[in-house]
Design a protein around this nucleic acid. Structure first.
Length: 617
RNA sequence: GCCGACGUAGCUCAGUUGGUCAGAGCGGCUGUUUUGUAAACAGCGGGCCGUGGGUUCGAAUCCCUCCGUCGGCUCCA
């Protein structure tokens, strides 16, 4: 999202002016163009245009850019003027700009005080005065006039470096029921160097793209015969999944969570009872029984099943909290255009858990979960901050205000106790309870929402969950949903890009590779012997005794991003000592040291066990 | 789902004004070589040019359908 505060005022003006210049250029080329909005965004700007039957493509960029440069070279002055809104409406009508007209009408209807609520950043064109009469501003350069809130630079020559980079569809005012306009994007910076730096950064991000690395490192695959959004994990990718899931489980099992297991299909009645049938509606995959009249669905979530386990017998306050843990896959029929690599899939594995507890136990339970999340993200090397989402004053929330108040306080206390950076937002809670979202920052500075802790006052009610309290009365427990990674697939997408595929030893699909110098019997036998010793220590390792040069085999191991590579030749066979080659991002010393083979294996096994981020060799 | 771009060997990609256009590099296989820390040498295989239709004397090339991928929109874990 655009944040003007994060961009310097100069840069903001340049980008805004460029959007305006691009609009002028497009109008030169296609005089019938009707304009939507043209705001500044991160790194650049865009303008939404309606060209009727004309479909823009990247092939059109050169001529648009040429027309833009002509305007820039002419160094035309931007002239700002203000008009009363009715005059502006007349202008919009006369110049055949229906979208501008709509904006102006909305503005007129809503009046001055309301104008600020229209999110002028998005509309990009509105200004309002403090008087009761709303005026709007126009900018003119040369023959081109545009309704625009500005601000602009003084003249078209002062706009810095830019490049058009993308064209896409965008619904008018973000509503899919509206007409679809074409959105032309550009990136813009003060200098050509800044622009180049940005383009280089984009290039670097492309190299780290998890879809590319997933193929290069042999982690996961898709098949047309299986379907879109349905990834399959290779042996290497499965190591990553399982190590992460094991860790996520361990972090909660030490706090008393117990694993459960549920089936992946269920009668739709379950979701009718939970209320999800209405909420998920067309996202559900339907399953038809050929033997019975059952109407089944693939589960889109796990909590209703877990409530059935809870409700399978009578619970006492002494039994609480009851904590269920299960990494399992849910299925959601996403719109095809939304699927993307592992970030957005139709088979979603959640490292899910549910606590059923008394109201006075919320804080301690949250406390445990926060601690677990904190440890997970420290271990994978991502900075974490949390968002506390509270209710607001509206009536849209279920559960008593007292319960909300108490729960929100307990959430906050737990966050403070865990010394996490946090911010609070009212009105962001789900209708069924307040929540904590964890925002993790990756190596490229991008923030991702992965883990969530969500309180739920509604499902216990809907499913009639209860426990017998100390005084013999029947009470309703509170449910706490939590997924530390969120979804394993999305987490992996983020994590693969975060590490660029250079996984730490505990996660590396292949931790050590032994490379033989020759195919002599003694050499191969020695390599195989220590490989067996390593596997006995739980290490994942391979012996490469292919008939290739040592250089070639080193290169292959490097490209596979194997943490440790060891060349085995006569020297090693004779001495029993090895010289580990340490992957460059991990190396802590320049000179490789010599170490006894057995000692080396034990050291690596310890690194894996303790999940260290970098090598200690 | 919508708008746009795209789909050629396992991978990365050439080849499209319709007519020796089925190509390269890497990978694979075979042989020679026995290699010491980022690419030894030679040979050989390998593709219904995403799918199904259409136009044409002739389609990887033009048109339509479907499937899939990518960039956005919308939605979301």
């Amino acid at each position: 999202m655009t944040d003007k505060a994060q961009q310097s005022d100069d840069l903001y003006r340049m980008r805004h002016s460029l959007a305006h210049i691009m609009a002028a250029a497009i109008q030169q080329l296609w005089p019938d163009v009707r304009f939507g909005v043209g705001p500044v965004i991160d790194n650049g700007f865009y303008y939404d245009v309606d060209l009727g039957e004309v479909k823009l493509s990247e092939d059109d960029f050169p001529k648009i850019e040429t027309a833009m440069r002509a305007i820039i070279d002419a160094n035309e002055t931007f002239e700002r003027s203000e008009k009363p809104i009715d005059e502006a409406l007349a202008w919009a009508e006369q110049t055949h700009q229906p979208y501008k007209q709509e904006l102006l009408n909305d503005l007129k209807r809503s009046g001055t005080t309301e104008a600020s609520k229209l999110n002028p950043e998005e509309l990009g064109t509105i200004t309002s005065s403090d008087t009761q009469v709303v005026t709007v501003s126009f900018y003119r350069n040369g023959n081109f006039v545009d309704l625009c809130r500005g601000p602009h630079v003084e003249s078209t020559g002062k706009v810095g470096a830019f490049k058009l980079n993308r064209v896409s569809g965008a619904y008018w005012r973000g509503n899919e029921k509206n007409a679809q306009l074409q959105r032309v994007h550009g990136v813009a910076f003060k200098t050509a160097e800044d622009l180049q730096d940005y383009l280089d950064m984009v290039e670097e991000a492309k190299k780290r793209d998890h879809r590319k690395l997933g193929q290069e490192l042999d982690l996961f695959v898709f098949s047309d015969m299986v379907g879109s959004g349905l990834p399959m994990f290779t042996p290497r990718g499965t190591v990553l999944r399982e190590e992460l899931i094991n860790f996520s489980n361990q972090l909660r099992q030490r706090d008393g969570f117990e694993k459960v297991h549920i089936p992946h299909i269920t009668k739709k009645e379950l979701y009718q009872a939970s209320g999800h049938w209405d909420k998920f509606g067309d996202e559900l995959f339907l399953v038809k029984s050929q033997e019975t009249s059952d109407e089944l669905v693939l589960k889109p979530m796990n909590c209703p099943h877990h409530t059935r386990i809870y409700a399978s017998k009578q619970r006492s306050y002494r039994d609480l909290p009851i904590r269920y843990l299960e990494a399992t896959t849910v299925y959601r029929d996403e719109k095809t255009g939304e699927l993307a690599g592992l970030s957005r899939v139709r088979a979603i594995t959640q490292d899910d858990s549910h606590v059923f507890c008394r109201q006075d136990q919320i804080e301690e339970e949250i406390n445990h979960l926060m601690g677990a999340a904190h440890e997970l993200y420290i271990t994978v090397g991502m900075a974490l901050r949390v968002r506390l989402s509270y209710r607001d004053d509206s009536e849209a929330y279920l559960g008593t205000p007292e319960l909300w108040q108490s729960a929100q306080e307990q959430l906050k206390n737990a966050v403070i106790a865990n010394k996490l950076e946090y911010f609070e937002e009212e009105g962001e809670a789900a209708f069924y309870g307040p929540k904590i979202d964890f925002m993790a920052t990756d190596a490229l500075g991008r923030e991702h929402q992965l883990a969530t802790v969500q309180l739920d006052f509604v499902q216990p009610e809907r499913f009639g969950l209860e426990y017998i309290a100390e005084d013999g009365s029947s009470q309703q427990p509170v449910m706490i949903h939590c997924a530390l990674m969120g979804s394993v697939e999305r987490f992996l997408a983020v994590y693969i890009e975060h590490t660029a595929g250079k996984f730490p030893v505990w996660l590396a699909p292949e931790q050590i590779r032994f490379i033989t110098v020759n195919q002599e019997e003694a050499t191969v036998a020695f390599a195989k012997k220590i490989a067996i010793e390593g596997r006995e220590l739980g290490l994942r390792l391979q012996v490469d005794n292919s008939n290739e040069s040592v250089g070639k085999k080193i290169r292959t191991a490097e490209l596979a991003k194997v943490p440790y590579t060891i060349v085995i030749g006569d020297k090693e066979v004779t001495s029993g000592e090895v010289v580990p080659r340490i992957r460059k991002d991990m190396a802590v010393m320049d000179i490789p040291m010599t170490v006894g083979a057995e000692q080396f294996l034990k050291t690596v096994a310890n690194e894996a066990k303790s999940r260290v981020l970098k090598t200690s060799l």
